[in-house]
């Protein structure tokens, strides 16, 4: 392929994506209730495309067993078979159907990343809001602990912890969630710190409101927008971190289908000019790009509303 053809292809793919995004937005505007409709109208094509991709991924993850032509872990043919009409994307290094593993990978990789992010948020956001609201020694202790934990690079820290605790799925989820919750803590705390200086918080304190109501009714609703955006970004980080660990052979373990390890297992094909191993990597990239596009739109909207 000459550079010109590559360029043409790239332009065509981008155009197709934007058209798909436009179609999705048009359909979505018709199909949703009034309040959401108004928001959707402000979505740029990139964000519309992102939403479309996210919806597709969720669909594939939920209905994986129904969509996949072959089972996840079964050897169905010789190794490294090329693309044909039975095995649409060929087979992998052990002779398992590539397409089916790709589809099951959506469930495993995305599912685990989602659970991990949710856990990280549960820990980080609760402690962050608490630290900002209560202040004093609680804030000091939590902040210093987080400072120290954040002084070790995330990937290195998780490698260290995984060496110690082993690489089962629960430890993987727990280790990544704890490490990422420190980042969530920082954000939640700083967002909440900007809110607790507001007069309405002072008014609520003087009224004699308890801590629970202060956090849930007065602070959380005002911190929600940045936290939701952060959830999207955090998901991308967690997703990439888990994929990287799996790629290094230290994340999700075989025979489970997982995009990161699928790249690793079949990487040899790349030097022979076969792009099949790039597909799972592309699947990862596509999802993170999509989430980022949607988050970018939301952040832009939030900053626009402030003015």
């Amino acid at each position: 392929m000459g550079p010109l053809i590559v360029l043409l292809w790239a332009v065509a793919v981008i155009a197709a994506c934007l058209v798909a995004g436009w179609l999705f937005r048009t359909v979505a505007i018709v199909a949703t209730p009034h309040t959401i409709k108004r928001e959707l109208r402000t979505a740029p094509l990139t964000a519309s495309f992102g939403m479309l991709v996210i919806v597709i991924y969720i669909f594939v993850a939920i209905f994986a067993p129904l969509i996949a032509p072959f089972p996840e872990r079964e050897i169905v043919g010789p190794e490294y078979m090329p693309w044909d009409h039975i095995h649409l994307l060929g087979t992998d290094n052990l002779g398992r159907d590539m397409l089916s593993r790709l589809i099951f990978g959506a469930r495993n990789t995305v599912g685990i990343a989602f659970v991990t992010t949710a856990l990280a948020f549960l820990i980080g956001a609760i402690l962050g809001l608490l630290a900002a609201t209560v202040g004093g020694w609680l804030d000091q202790i939590l902040s210093r602990v987080v400072d120290v934990l954040m002084a070790i690079p995330a990937l290195i820290f998780s490698l260290l912890l995984l060496t110690i605790f082993g690489t089962s799925i629960p430890t993987l989820i727990l280790v990544i969630a704890v490490i990422d919750s420190t980042r969530v803590f920082r954000l939640a705390r700083s967002v909440a710190l900007n809110i607790v200086v507001m007069d309405y918080i002072e008014a609520a304190k003087l009224r004699g409101e308890g801590l629970w109501r202060l956090i849930t009714r007065e602070i959380l609703p005002n911190a929600l927008a940045p936290l939701v955006a952060e959830f999207g970004l955090r998901f991308c980080f967690v997703f990439l971190a888990i994929s990287a660990l799996s790629f290094l052979g230290l994340g999700l373990q075989p025979p489970m289908a997982d995009w990161g390890s699928m790249v690793k297992e079949n990487a040899t094909l790349i030097s022979f000019g076969d792009i099949t191993p790039l597909l799972p990597a592309g699947a990862i990239a596509l999802l993170t790009v999509s989430v980022n596009f949607v988050v970018d739109w939301q952040l832009h909207r939030a900053s626009g509303l402030k003015e």
Binding site: C236, L240, S243, A244, F247, G260, V263, K264, A267, I270, S271, P277, L278, A281, G282, I284, A285, T288, V289, V291, N292, F293, D296
Partner: peptide, 16 residues
């Protein structure tokens, strides 16, 4: 935004 979203190994293999 796109290149942030790519896993490092994806970028690496595309370049390879």
């Amino acid at each position: 935004l796109t290149s942030i979203s790519f896993p490092e190994f994806f970028v690496a293999y595309i370049l390879i």
